[in-house]
Design a protein around this nucleic acid. Sequence first.
DNA 1: CCATGGAGACTAACATGTTAGTTGACATAG
DNA 2: CTATGTCAACTAACATGTTAGTCTCCATGG
Lengths: 236, 236
Amino acid sequence: MTNTDIDATRLQDIGSFEGSLAHRVYLALQDAILSLKFLPGQVVRKGPVCEKLGVSRSPVSEAIARLANEGLVDVIPQSGTRIAHLSMEDIREGTFLRQALELASVAKVAEDRTEDQFAQINRNMRLQDLLVEDGDFPGFYQADEEFHALLMAFTGYPRLKTVARMVSLQVTRARMLLLPTPGRTTETLDEHRAVVDAIRIRDPDAAQRAMRLHLGQLMPRIEALAETRPELFQSR
Amino acid sequence: MTNTDIDATRLQDIGSFEGSLAHRVYLALQDAILSLKFLPGQVVRKGPVCEKLGVSRSPVSEAIARLANEGLVDVIPQSGTRIAHLSMEDIREGTFLRQALELASVAKVAEDRTEDQFAQINRNMRLQDLLVEDGDFPGFYQADEEFHALLMAFTGYPRLKTVARMVSLQVTRARMLLLPTPGRTTETLDEHRAVVDAIRIRDPDAAQRAMRLHLGQLMPRIEALAETRPELFQSR
DNA sequence: CCATGGAGACTAACATGTTAGTTGACATAG
DNA sequence: CTATGTCAACTAACATGTTAGTCTCCATGG
């Protein structure tokens, strides 16, 4: 009643989103799960969610079905729905899948990029430099996301971004717990720069190596986290 | 009325599946779409589907929502649902995504495989030889699928297979139209054998090269198809 | 002959009612 | 004190009712 249930009042209002009701409910719930406003293991009750968002059970059910499909919640048939625990298995798999997609993307972009595309990547890179210099961590986080999003966009494959986001949702959630450290941000900058350099000289293999090196930094940091916050993880 | 609508009577009975009603309806519809019993452009009416399958609109709606999410149908809000056209864009993207996942998988398997896993792969390979020798095309198609499924399973990442299937659904549908030719099957055998050889000597790079070569054979054949059956495709 | 607009039929999306299965607390037996 | 069976409360899943938006088609006006 007190701690085992989610706190539906922490959901953001769905008026800020667009699309069908079901989709807006989905976004609100996903945000709460990814940002850890809802903790792993907590029970999702449709009643309070409907009440808070001012909708009926239909769109809420559809939203929960999608979240279950993405592995963010566990639906127990005829019984209940719970926020999924983080599991190192899932995170490892998500990292693997994400890396597969990122490596293929960066190789393709390194081969096919236009001058204009490279200019955009380079502009983003300079923005990253600036933000780190200013110590603007949230801004840098966003620019970092955009760096990867740009690369995917420049493949010309629109679904790529969606698929990449989907497979690495659990990783995203875990990343929320990683505090930005000054040392890590400058390392990140160097790694990004190596990727950009490879793209500049149109060297797919070098781009892949640089990206692999960059992405390889994440898992060890998450593994360290699993020891600090074991209650969020599940052994299975 | 006659040709613009799907023929719901061609749906297979959902009794043959297991899981929730919604999931079984989903499987029945997906089968009909992938096997081209339902043609691109045709309108899906919930009424006849409910009637044929003996269920209410709820599970049908949920199934259609999932199909829309996977791009197999286009839902026009407040209006109707249509079987999605094949598009070379989607197929190219699906091939790219699929290849990204297969290359990452085969490299990992080449590195990490156990002796027992290799034995299973090798057994499948010998089965393929046998089936081609006997001219059993459906059997070979199935063994081919299993060959790729084995590789993905041996990564140890269970969602991989699901994701791979999802991203290449459009490709699967297009492949249904490709007639097996004796020449192509022996080529396929050689390509598979090259992959197996690389896995035997635990050479990830060679395995990737062999797999890339193998997967690269598909797109040209589909592109030829688009000229033969233009009514199934859409320019967008 | 073409444009336009409006009425009706149809639909997805949403709301609500119903069913059947699971869980957990509690009482009772060992 | 532990094991077990029962029962009530709760839930997901499904069925059905309602709403509001879209499309088609035909009539009317230019």
